[in-house]
Amino acid sequence: MNIVGESWVTTKFENLEDWAQRNSFWPFPFGTACCAIEFMSTLSSHYDVARFGSEVVRFSPRQSDVLLVAGTINDKMAPVLKKIYDQMADPKWVISMGACACSGGFYRAYHVMQGIDEIIPVDVYVPGCPPTPEGLMYGILQLKERVTRDRKKHRVQAGLRAEEQSGKTEEAVDRVDDRVTAPA
């Protein structure tokens, strides 16, 4: 059945790419503790994160673009997390789910990392101990906007690199910075 009929849109390929990326995350669930259980709730039929295009969880860092850190990361786990992050292909984003991943939570202790941003960059912090599924979904929606912005930035930076290689001056840097900080 042809619902759409014979219709067509014109757009730039970049915009199409942005649209695809921000509406279909493939998260890597780095679940260690209680937050992982709430992540399972978010995934399951009651909350159904598939509505936001993020249900294709991948346990391989090579196949995923969002690292979803759910749970306490301690000093023993830290090298593992860093390695997983390094193995993910660019462009990649990080959601830090829950108080422990954001700041160590109430574990101000000898074996607990005081927030994963000690070792990897974080794009969205979701507070809560654990966050409710609604909270996590809000975080995912926030990430969508972030992705649009980031992709633009990546493109501009790629352009910058190209200009640098073709021998342009440093003026290009200022110009590019302006464009990055401009609203999306």
């Binding site: 503790a33 259980i37 301690n74 023993k76």
Partner: peptide, 27 residues
């Protein structure tokens, strides 16, 4: 990989404050 120092934490908090830590044993 998830050792979060429950027993040390309970020694540094008072008796009521330990209750939230116990939640996170078998969550």
């Amino acid at each position: 990989y998830l050792h979060r120092c429950f027993e040390k934490m309970s020694e540094t908090h008072n008796w009521q404050q330990v209750i939230p830590y116990t939640d996170r044993l078998n969550y």
